[in-house]
Design a protein around this nucleic acid. Structure first.
Length: 464
RNA sequence: GGCGGCGUGGCCGAGAGGCGAGGCAAGGGACUGCAAAUCCCCGUACCCCGGUUCGAAUCCGGGCGCCGCCUCCA
């Protein structure tokens, strides 16, 4: 079955086929590292982490690049406020980024390039644009001439002429056209600067992504992803710069995620309505947060609320419960006969999971497939099936969870000898019908984080 | 003003012309010493108004409401 993805460029769901057979070059717009990120930022990183994991699970070799923007106005301002050098500030918040990314199970990209480490590439790109007449100089600044790029606006539907009507920004008089944007900004006193053929300065915002993406992934990317707020002007400008310099399509498939809202409004640093991963993990498990993030389709808006996180935690527990049960079942399954029905259930669940993911990475539908499997597992939990089948079920559930970055951590582990002995004591108490003693032991274990469930198939336990 | 998106049962959230995804909650039942878990049953939902169609939540037209982008932004 073909994988289909909604391409922002054109707006249609298209069959996804990488340029080179079996290999995918993927670029994700990373954060500006001038402060701690918020969960809204991480929605994007989690969403595209799922995309990369899924692509890999289909056997594609994915090269994922995610940058760190480590020089811009906000960085410079934050340096002054924190009294840190640009590099130290970046180091500090890159570390914070990785701390949170690790908590949420966002895998490392293959390359995490930094803008300040790619000045030669950026300057080269600027020079090419200048040579080709796509850019012009104004004193120490370099601007991209939008009217020279005929398909400008194809991604966002924003064309330079249309924008003027409602322009709220004061037009920089030095630009030839109000829609032109800076490729290079001449140094101002006290600002970090690098040497260039046009004098000291620093790169404009958009140019770094073009330069780094093309350096690591070639002139045509398979996937370029980021938040919906980046469509215009950032990604529009990236296309213009890159294609004006190479003459070939910059990217075949553009993926954009919807925003995380707080009380109906986009969570954003400038609005100040942000929640950090750090704050959230004081109240919820990281995996619960991740579950919440993948419980809606990546392109749809998603509203944060404590209730939503609460629900996510319970739903995740249901998934985990089934997995634990399967593990217990392995002990009882030895020597049992195979039953064809459950095998079919596994195949059916796998098929609907795949179908969901192939349809534009539909994670909520994929979760539904997992819950369908979970119900079947729970129904059959004490029925006859072979150990092989039980293992297969466990593997299937784990694989499904793994692609979403779920069901990984919090392995229940083994019951310590001490606890196992207590469980045995309670079992004999129950056989004596000494309920008081049985309940006492159960309470004691609960106090120490071990919860028991009496079932027809025997005692089960879980941590919690 | 321009561009884009959204409006589904108590809540969340898929679907996109024809047997009412899935999760959470509520109710009923089974199981059970208790607890927990689990299972079964239980909902005639698609913002409004027109239209197309044998049939529309899904397509078309017109409204209303909300959000995003057009300025830094995942």
């Amino acid at each position: 079955m073909p994988l289909r993805a909604r391409n922002t460029l054109g707006g249609a769901k298209e069959i996804f086929k990488p340029l080179k057979n079996g290999e995918v070059g993927m670029y994700v717009c990373g954060p500006t590292v001038y402060r701690e990120l918020h969960v809204g930022n991480f929605r994007a990183f989690v969403a595209f982490d799922v995309v990369a994991r899924y692509l890999r699970s289909r056997g594609l070799r994915v090269t994922k690049v995610q940058n760190f923007t480590d020089v811009d106005d906000k960085m410079i301002r934050a340096c002054r406020e924190e009294n840190l050098s640009l590099a130290d500030l970046a180091d500090k918040y890159i570390e914070v980024y990785f701390r949170d990314a690790d908590l949420l199970g966002v895998e490392r990209a293959d390359v995490h390039p930094r803008a300040t480490e790619h000045l030669p590439e950026i300057i080269d790109l600027c020079a090419t644009l200048l040579e080709r007449g796509s850019a012009y100089r104004v004193n120490g600044d370099l601007y991209f001439a939008v009217e020279k790029f005929h398909s400008y606006g194809r991604l966002s539907g924003q064309t330079p002429g249309e924008r003027e009507a409602g322009a709220r920004v004061e037009v920089d008089r030095r630009k030839a056209n109000p829609a032109d944007f800076a490729l290079w900004k001449g140094a101002k006193p006290g600002e970090p600067a690098w040497e260039s053929p046009w004098g000291p300065g620093r790169p404009g915002w958009h140019i770094e992504c073009s330069a780094m993406a093309m350096k690591y992934l070639g002139t045509t990317l398979d996937i370029h992803a980021g938040g919906a707020d980046l469509i215009f002007p950032h990604h529009e400008n990236e296309i213009a710069q890159s294609e004006a310099s190479t003459g070939v399509p910059f990217c075949r498939c553009w993926l954009h995620n919807g925003h995380l809202n707080l009380e109906g409004e986009k969570m954003s640093k400038s609005l100040g309505n942000v929640l950090s991963v750090d704050e959230l993990t004081k109240r919820w498990e990281p995996e619960t947060i991740r579950y919440f993030l993948v419980s809606a389709h990546y392109r749809a808006p998603l509203n944060y609320s404590p209730e939503a996180l609460e629900t996510a935690g319970k739903s995740l527990e249901r998934l985990r419960g089934a997995l634990d049960r399967l593990k217990d079942l392995k002990q009882y399954a030895a020597g049992k006969e195979d039953n064809p029905a459950p095998a079919e259930v596994l195949d059916r669940a796998t098929r609907s999971y795949e179908a969901a993911m192939e349809d534009d990475f539909n994670t909520p539908a994929a979760l539904a497939a997992m819950f369908d499997l979970v119900r079947e597992v729970n129904v059959r939990v004490d029925a006859a099936c072979s150990p092989q089948l039980v293992s297969r079920a466990e593997g299937t559930l784990r694989r499904m969870g793994g692609i979403l970055g779920l069901l990984g951590e919090r392995d229940r582990g083994e019951l310590s000898a001490e606890f196992a002995a207590l469980v045995q004591m309670r079992e004999s108490a129950r056989r004596r019908r000494d309920w008081a003693e049985a309940d006492r032991i159960r309470q004691e274990l609960a106090g120490r984080g071990i919860h028991l469930e009496d079932t027809p198939g025997g005692v089960r336990w879980k941590r919690g």
